[in-house]
Design a protein around this nucleic acid. Structure first.
Length: 270
DNA sequence: ATATGCACCTGTGTGC
DNA sequence: TGCACACAGGTGCATA
């Protein structure tokens, strides 16, 4: 479900509630397919203190007081939700974390693509180093350089690739292309310096606005209080197939690109 | 090195 | 009303 703005929303809420707290205990409910956490997960994490909750790309990182960490990826339907002490488990709840400040946190994941892992500091460094630059923490120039090569790659494929730029997913890739007036199928080699700069300028603005709205709830996404994000109504192409373009009234088109639904205005985006 | 296609899952909405 | 099928904010791996 979540892309950078949604994961960032969850990150800040987690950080607010559990930074400085110690994990009292972890209840692992039946998890469907794999042993999502590794056998030593519980043992490794119980008793540790959270020093900070960070985000890199779409990955959440709980920094622990011994230099190790817990990583969590929401993938399509993963959720962290704070609950009351008398909460009763529902169908897709997988893990319950209890903290020494009284917080109870549930990890829930309908489709079971998501994961939580415990990792050493060394493993974490390796995982994080594979990601491209963070859009909100990088200059437009730096980001624009990332989408110069390879010349035949389509711009949408580049935007979705986390090694190129971190955190952009299907919704915001489409929205960024629309704002910049660039067709998602355009090959990198056909983009001018100006095109690249404009696209990244819009991408940064878009992501900032979406973070301010606490993300987009297109299907399943909710934050740690179970609340939806406010950015859905501000989307201009995603999910608007057949509706008039906000700029020129031409009906928005949808196609499949890199196996992902891709939305664009055939007139505004060249 | 890059592109493609599928696989991992469940739930929901659509069209017949 | 039922059923089959397509599709969903993501990634990883196997194959060309």
């Amino acid at each position: 479900m979540p892309e950078l703005p949604e994961v960032e929303t969850v990150r800040s809420q987690l950080d607010e509630h559990i930074r400085g707290a110690r994990i009292l205990d972890i209840t692992i409910w039946k998890s469907g397919r794999e042993k999502p956490v590794g056998e030593d997960f519980k043992q490794h994490l119980e008793g540790k203190k959270i020093t900070e909750v960070q985000r890199r790309a779409k990955l959440l990182v709980w920094r622990l007081d011994d230099g190790s960490a817990m990583t969590a990826h929401l993938k399509m339907t993963g959720r962290f939700v704070f609950v009351d002490a008398d909460y009763e488990r529902t169908k897709h709840d997988r893990i319950l974390f209890r903290f020494d400040n009284g917080a109870h946190l549930v990890w829930n994941d309908v489709r079971q693509f998501g994961f939580v892992h415990s990792v050493t500091g060394e493993m974490l460094e390796k995982i994080l180093s594979a990601y491209g630059p963070e859009p909100l923490a990088s200059s437009i120039e730096c980001l624009a350089e990332r989408i110069e090569k390879p010349k035949t790659r389509m711009i949408k494929a580049a935007l979705l690739n986390q090694e190129v730029i971190a955190g952009i997913g299907n919704i915001y890739a489409d929205e960024a292309c629309f704002r910049a007036g660039i067709r998602p199928t355009r090959r990198l080699g056909t983009l001018t310096e100006k095109d690249r700069f404009r696209l990244m300028k819009h991408a940064k603005e878009l992501l900032e606005e979406a973070v301010n709205q606490r993300g987009t709830s297109a299907n399943d996404y909710v934050d740690t209080e179970g609340k939806k994000g406010g950015f859905l109504a501000l989307l201009r192409v995603y999910g608007r197939e057949g509706e008039p373009c906000v700029k020129c009234k031409t009906p928005i088109k949808k196609m499949v690109l890199s196996q992902r639904g891709t939305h664009f205005c055939p007139k505004c985006q060249r």
